[in-house]
Design a protein around this nucleic acid. Sequence first.
DNA 1: CATGAATGAGCTTTCATTCAT
DNA 2: CATGAATGAAAGCTCATTCAT
Lengths: 230, 230, 230, 230
Amino acid sequence: MNTGEPTLSAPSQEPSQALSCPQRHAMGEDPAKRAQILAGAGRVISRMGYDAASVNDIAREAGVSKGTIYVYFAGKEDLFEALMEETRERLFLALGAELEKPGPLRERLFSYASVLAQKLCSDPVIRAHRVMIGVAERMPELGARFYERGSTRGTRFLGSFLETHVAAGTLIIADVPLAASQFFELCMAGLFRRRLFAHMPEPPAPAEIDKTIRSAIDMFLTYYGAPGRT
Amino acid sequence: MNTGEPTLSAPSQEPSQALSCPQRHAMGEDPAKRAQILAGAGRVISRMGYDAASVNDIAREAGVSKGTIYVYFAGKEDLFEALMEETRERLFLALGAELEKPGPLRERLFSYASVLAQKLCSDPVIRAHRVMIGVAERMPELGARFYERGSTRGTRFLGSFLETHVAAGTLIIADVPLAASQFFELCMAGLFRRRLFAHMPEPPAPAEIDKTIRSAIDMFLTYYGAPGRT
Amino acid sequence: MNTGEPTLSAPSQEPSQALSCPQRHAMGEDPAKRAQILAGAGRVISRMGYDAASVNDIAREAGVSKGTIYVYFAGKEDLFEALMEETRERLFLALGAELEKPGPLRERLFSYASVLAQKLCSDPVIRAHRVMIGVAERMPELGARFYERGSTRGTRFLGSFLETHVAAGTLIIADVPLAASQFFELCMAGLFRRRLFAHMPEPPAPAEIDKTIRSAIDMFLTYYGAPGRT
Amino acid sequence: MNTGEPTLSAPSQEPSQALSCPQRHAMGEDPAKRAQILAGAGRVISRMGYDAASVNDIAREAGVSKGTIYVYFAGKEDLFEALMEETRERLFLALGAELEKPGPLRERLFSYASVLAQKLCSDPVIRAHRVMIGVAERMPELGARFYERGSTRGTRFLGSFLETHVAAGTLIIADVPLAASQFFELCMAGLFRRRLFAHMPEPPAPAEIDKTIRSAIDMFLTYYGAPGRT
DNA sequence: CATGAATGAGCTTTCATTCAT
DNA sequence: CATGAATGAAAGCTCATTCAT
């Protein structure tokens, strides 16, 4: 069932945490089974989209019965919301870690941009974005939260980082959130939107990412860098 | 039926050009009815997405019978493809017109960026993008063509414009397509993706667009402008 | 459109009889077009059956518009009835001709049986039977008339022939209609029903027909022949 | 729902065998419900034919929901195939039993022919034949199997029986399969085909069957009987 | 708790028929 | 008279959801 491809969701944790919840039998809701359902739903939904993925498909892919799904989730939409929350948390985890390491400004930005571009152009992230954007009209709160807590995560870390350097005098930025957005978009220029539309069928080669983010950092530091400090 | 909202598709041409086509009889498939169907489909699909919009809904909204739809289109997917083609052509029409007017470089970029940002952040365009991105996984060719002939249109005009200025010595750009993408993304920084995810429910205020594109143009010209020429 | 296969109906007469009906324009119903429709209907219906053949299919195959069919026929069922009448008359035409030629009894029966078996096991006749039998439950009068005027035709000629020989003393038959049926069935033994069920996909080879009807005639004359007269 | 008429399919077993299957739970697809669906399908299809019988009609007649039908069968055609298999097995069951009883040749043939003619001219068998023949053009394999395993069943038993008598010297037959077919057709002469076409609306009266099979047996034994042994 | 058979509303599509041209 | 666009009903089939086991 699992084709091994990267998917929206793949926790696939074993039902092993029995110890952390000794009285399992009497109180229902095995978290491992919940994760199993989410994993199956993630694979199916990332492949077919929310509407085209039937609960039947999800049950089959997850290896549970249809009824079980309704034990863990109130309905298809509820399952979907949970999936999107889980996916967002997992995919965008630790995106700012590179910024916390020591090192000169340009190197830090480069490390961060590398991880960012590589991650955001990956198949699982692109698929999650497609699914989320595809239903954003009907589920605007879900979409907003996805952006707020997901996409923003990257730029928020970056924002703090930039603030620090502004305070240190190495960067001169009037509108830090705008600058963070600009850095982010520059790093994705010609990559992310093409990926979303399937105009670029495969993730970009490292060389292409490298070229793009070097130019982005150059432009960014040229504009925001304090003269003689970078 | 027509709710008056901006939609994916709104040809809404009256069936009035009887004069321009005197031999109406025996000529098959009335193009006005085709447009009427596409308009209805555009409204419904932009509201609900491709999968959730039923042919029934579309027929009701378009004011035709379900059967009629199958006279004009081979099926739901065929109708959808025609809708996306039509929508793309209509929405992205004449996006580069501002660049062809005379005037200094910075003013031309500003005019262009204004139209671009205002248009791309408008509800109809955002909805069309959501729909298209939402099905890009299953219909990658359609998605790629949408990007190729739609999104690219803006940057292609911009590319030619930049080339001209490179030739004239007013800009120094090694990789013009990359620069075009960068300009495009900078103009949308903090706007377009937020709109897609419904994190920004309404189109941005003119002031916000203004602030964003001014910063974008500044950064762009600072980096690519020939010293002493801008 | 016409695949050249043998079909239920293939009059395919040219619209040439204009002379026999000089005032065509004012009184409607061109018999050639009627035949054209029946021919198309015959091809389609013999291939797909009455229910599965759509009026659309028939119109396309006949090369006329759907509306035209309703000028010549009151509806699909009326068209079907006309088709069955026409088909029956055409397919079973001149089935008794062999019996009217001169010659000894056994030779006449052999000639007759040859034509009968070859004709009744042919694709067009088998297909017409399948179609007719398939709807006999819902249209019993049509089925009865088909049998009465079609299948009976063969045995009626045979009946007269047998009567003659009974009168002449060459045959001794108490129940002539029964004897005619018996002769008929003996000639088809192991052939006709297998053909109907598609257990015998192709018409039987001449040798198989020959073997079958020789045995049939032998048995028939052994039983009904006047001793010393055959 | 069940009109009480004889039909294609009438298993009508009550869901009462709970005892014979104690572990009913968790064993999937209830065979009683499957039989119930087949019974309903048999009634509707024998009345209207395969194409004219809608899945809706079948569901209503069977007393199940449309969806349930698709739990037990892959589609309408699959249901139909199962119905034809089941019908064939049931209708033609134990057709040769009469031949296995002891008794003189002529009496055995008479008993067999009686059962055969009465059964084959009955409404359920005629209807099953009409349905099967009606779709034989489109489903030739199904038709061939129906003939192979159904119609043949009668003549195969008869064939063995004849072989025995040939070996015993009571019959002299060169081509036993042909002779079996001949016997079969002679017994149905003037009955079966008329029934198929609805030219004979009701099953033949016993007297008519009696007359027909007596003549058939007479002719058969006159031709194939060993002189002085019958 | 887990199951999957059962449901009926709803899906996309095709139908026989009509009628303005 | 011939056309084929238009129609509403109905086709085969799938859906999300429920519930007895």
